[in-house]
Design a protein around this nucleic acid. Structure first.
Lengths: 210, 210
DNA sequence: GCCTGTGCTTGACAGTTGTCAAGAAAAGTT
DNA sequence: AACTTTTCTTGACAACTGTCAAGCACAGGC
């Protein structure tokens, strides 16, 4: 770390360090997603990476820091998952359709990551050290869902009947249920999720009298 | 086990055996609820019981069998939790009110058991050996919720707009959210849960035009 | 070409885990 | 009272865990 490095780009050395952390996080997510938090040992994690098991303590304080860093690293990317849908939809019906499809797609394509998320969120009820990070990510996910709900309200010209927390809680429940069923039963259940969302989202808004 | 024992009561020895299993399960639930599935060791479990750590393998094949037996033992009691509410309510409003209160109460009084349940359900996505038992209990919980929904439909004379699975998924999501918040923030959040349920349950039925 | 510091590997550590066998203790039978 | 069976405890086992220190490899600066 020479002085003029800092002149060129103020955060160069940190960046290099952080790039390795990201690389490790990416590898860790593979194993964590496969085995879950409790059963993913550092040796197993390192085994699925280009590095040896000792390297973790060069880049992270302990296992917990690696896990938290990893899940933050993942979730940072995916809290914008529905933003394109929100932006591009031009009618409430189109929005619901695209949103439901995207929900099913992410289960299909990233089931292990979602399993890991629910695992960590549940562990945070037993392990206080996890709580802050989980709470923060959960809030970001709630905000993500609310952008969908709010957009629906705008497009349909109907005020939402539910709070942000309630909308997130309910949709998250359906999502988790679908993930569980998908894990046991595979592909077929995803159509059910889409159908559920199509049926339920409109109920959160003032109904056209019928 | 003498022959005439079987004459007196056909299942006597089994019952005695099972009574000890229940006793062990009850102790195990204490520790499991406190530490979660992964961190609750057999020694810790036995430590919170009148027995020593070796006794587990006299009554159970392995740790998994003990855990599954324990959670089954607990859930068998509590899938009837809302039946009195269902039976005694004489109006839809009264039903919602009593149901919401009961939901909050069970978080207040049995939070560790609920944490354990969600822990095990999540672990079942990683550990196939858990899946059958979890699936079965989950179905029983869904049926429990449906009895409430169905009763509401009868009392309010409005057909339900959601399926059994959807109703369970949504309410379970809200419940889990409240449990998480309660674990971090305590008592105050429970009022929020009751309010949410009051607001949301009616949305699952055909609305009075408004 | 030597030297220094960063990056990484290796091997060991102390502690914990589920499991089980050997036998003590208790209960039941004759 | 002698003997059998059931019940339970103790102590050991191999495997596995997170952690960390010692040292190798290899870059860049002199």
């Amino acid at each position: 770390m020479t002085p003029y490095d800092d002149l060129v780009t103020a955060t160069r050395p940190v960046d290099k360090f952080d790039r390795r952390r990201d690389e490790l996080a990416e590898s860790a997510l593979l194993t964590l997603g496969e085995l879950g938090y409790a059963r993913a040992s550092l040796r197993e994690i390192a085994g699925n990476s280009p590095f040896s098991h000792g390297v973790v303590h060069y880049y992270f304080e302990d296992k917990l820091e690696l896990v938290i860093y990893s899940v933050r690293y993942y979730k940072a990317r995916c809290v914008t998952r529905y933003d394109a849908v929100v932006r591009d939809s031009t009618s409430a019906e189109e929005l619901v359709e695209a949103f439901a499809a995207k929900l099913a797609q992410t289960i299909r394509e990233e089931a292990p990551m979602h399993r890991l998320w629910y695992d960590l969120r549940t562990q945070s009820m037993f392990e206080e050290a996890l709580r802050d990070a989980i709470t923060e990510i959960d809030a970001a996910l709630e905000a993500m869902i609310w952008r969908v709900i709010d957009r629906y309200a705008t497009l349909s010209r109907h005020a939402s009947l539910v709070t942000s927390a309630a909308a997130y809680g309910m949709l998250d429940g359906l999502f988790q249920q679908a993930l569980l069923a998908y894990t046991a039963g595979g592909e077929p259940v995803l159509d059910g999720l889409a159908a559920q969302v199509r049926a339920i989202l409109p109920l959160m808004f003032r109904q056209p009298s019928a």
